[in-house]
Each structure stands twice: as C-alpha cells, then as structure tokens.
C-alpha cells in the first residue's frame, strides 16, 4: 500500500510538472499583456518600455528559466493586475470553490443514492421514468441559462431568494442548485444502472430467499454494489467543480477560483493563471489518490494487484 501510494504521488508530481510547463508556454503563446494593461492611447515607446521592464521581450526560454527559478524558491510570481503575490490571490479564492464543491457533491451523492435506488427498485415504473427524464433533462440544460432563469424566477418574480452574492444561507441555494443538477443527473444514472444489475444478481436473490427485508436489500446489499462507480463519477464531477465553477461564480458573484482563472487569462495575468492551475491541480491529484485508496479499501481485488 505504501509503495503504491508512493508511486501514485510520483506520477502525480510528474504530471503536475508537465501541466505547469504546458500552461506556461500555452499562456505565453496568447500574447503578452502590454497592450491590455496600458491604455489604448499609450505611445509605442511607452509600450516598448513597459514590455521590456516586465521582461516580456526576453526570449521565452529565459522567461521560463526565471519562472522555474522562482518556483524552486516557492515564489509563484507577482500578479501584474493586482500587483501582489499571485498565490495570495489564488489562496483567497480557493476556499469558496472548495466549499461549493463540498456542499454540492455531498448533496448530489446523497440525493442520487436515494433517487437512483428507488428508481432501480422498479425499472420502467412511474417513479423510474419520472426520475430518469427529470434528472437527464436537468443535466442537459446549459447551466448559465438555468442560473439566469432561476434568478428571474425565484428572486425577481417570486422574491423567495436573493438574486446573487454571499452572506446568508439563502444565498447558497441557487448556486448550489445550479451546480447540483449535472452531477446529480449523472449519479442517478450510475446508481440506477448498477442497482438494476445488482438487484437481479444471484446474491440479492439469495438474500431475498433468506427473507431479508426489501428495504435492507435495496439500501445495504444492492447499494454497496454502486459504491465504486459512484465514487468514480463523483470524483470526476468534483474535479470539474474544483477546476472552475466559472459560470456559477460569474453569474452569482461568488469569488471562486474558476472565475479568477478565466478573468486572469483574458487579461493575460500569467502569474495568477499559473498559481491557480497549480493549486487546483494539487487538489485534484490529492483527491484522485484518496479515491484510489478508497477503491483499494472497498474492493479487495484491487488491493491484491
């Protein structure tokens, strides 16, 4: 197990380095921030002077060397826009994203297990059909569309919820609901699918024959079968939120890392782009390792490999 974890961590580190290198060069290919930072009326000389002073005219490899050197000293660069350490800005935004991801995924998994299990109990039944169509329809709607319609409906017309922003728990409802629908829809599908398989399997039949209660069969015996696929899909979805719930953050004014990342690349604020990517990648690699461990614990076959 220890050796396995060590190898996973090493793989993670290799990928992380690769990712940072890729981000560095791809970002530089999009052009330097001089024209965006200076006013449109700035003279050619002013532009040239600015670019030189900030090192944008140096050869790419020189810039890269500087970046690597700084990284080695845990210096993640200064944001050209915010004129403060880029990692400060990234760390400030990250908790919001993590909170959103945690609440969303907990709710999504909880709800999906219940709904998926009930749907699988009678495949083709009314509940199954309804749950299936509603969960899929929710997962198929463009999220910015759902978000704005939600604001107009629940905040403007009905006045039940605040339009956007942070503060009370009421402010959480719409952003979470918008984030929730896709993972919830996918997870219901996964739970339902694996449960249907499990319910017609030999060991559930045996349990039935032994007189185990139906409720226990659904929620204990069959549901256990869904654990691994649910973890896989949930991990994937959680990573997607950690990597940027851009649209929810933008529309509802939640200061998360996704919005920071996208705003920064639009403004060519490379230091922040790099810092945010580093942060989210570390989070996601760590989560993947935890998931792998969970796999090994839950499925003995994997442990033996």
């Amino acid at each position: 197990m220890g050796q396995y974890l060590g190898r996973r961590a090493l793989h993670g580190l290799v990928s992380l380095i690769g990712l940072l290198v890729l981000v560095f060069f791809l970002a530089r290919l999009t052009g330097d921030p001089t024209n965006l930072f200076l006013p449109l009326d700035a003279s050619l000389e002013a532009r040239q002077e600015f670019a030189e002073r900030h090192g944008f005219t140096d050869p790419l490899l020189t810039q890269f060397g500087r970046y690597v050197g700084d990284l080695a000293r845990l210096d993640f660069g200064i944001s050209i826009r915010q004129q403060r350490p880029a990692m400060d800005a990234a760390l400030e935004a990250f908790p919001t994203t993590l909170k959103l991801a945690a609440v969303t995924m907990t709710l999504a998994i909880g709800l999906a297990l219940v709904v998926g299990a009930l749907a699988a109990y009678r495949p083709g039944g009314l509940f199954d059909r309804t749950a299936n169509v509603i969960s899929l329809a929710g997962a198929s709607a463009p999220d910015f569309w759902v978000a704005i319609v939600g604001i107009l409906l629940f905040a403007v017309t009905l006045r039940w919820l605040p339009t956007s922003g942070t503060g009370t728990w009421l402010h959480w409802i719409m952003p979470i609901a918008v984030l929730l629908i896709r993972p919830f829809g996918l997870l219901v599908q996964v739970v339902r699918g694996t449960m249907i398989g499990a319910l017609s399997s030999a060991y559930v039949k045996t349990a039935r024959a032994k007189g185990v209660k139906e409720r226990a069969i659904i929620f204990v015996h069959a549901l256990r079968n869904s654990t691994l696929p649910v973890i896989t899909v949930a991990g994937d979805q959680a990573a997607a939120i950690v990597n940027g719930a851009v649209i929810v953050e933008t529309i509802f004014g939640w200061p998360g890392i996704g919005k920071l990342m996208i705003d920064s690349i639009i403004q060519r604020d490379f230091a922040i782009v790099q810092a945010t990517v580093l942060l989210t990648a570390v989070a996601i690699f760590s989560m993947n390792i935890v998931i792998d461990v969970a796999y090994a614990v839950l499925d003995p076959r994997i442990r033996h490999n």
């Binding site: 793989h11 993670g12 290799v14 990928s15 992380l16 690769g18 990712l19 890729l22 981000v23 791809l26 970002a27 290919l29 999009t30 052009g31 990573a239 997607a240 990597n243 940027g244 851009v246 996704g258 990342m261 996208i262 690349i265 639009i266 782009v273 990517v277 989210t280 990648a281 996601i284 690699f285």
Partner: peptide, 23 residues
C-alpha cells in the same frame, strides 16, 4: 501516454479551451 492523459485531465477544460482559442 498515461502521464500525458493525466496532464490533459487535470487541465481545467475551460482554461485549456480559452488558451487554444486565443492562440
């Protein structure tokens, strides 16, 4: 190949899309 896939998977997909479409 697997490490390359890891890199691609951990690359925030909207960011990747923006970068490529800016270039």
């Amino acid at each position: 190949i697997m490490r390359l896939a890891d890199i691609l998977m951990s690359f925030p997909s909207l960011l990747l899309a923006l970068l490529v479409l800016f270039v």
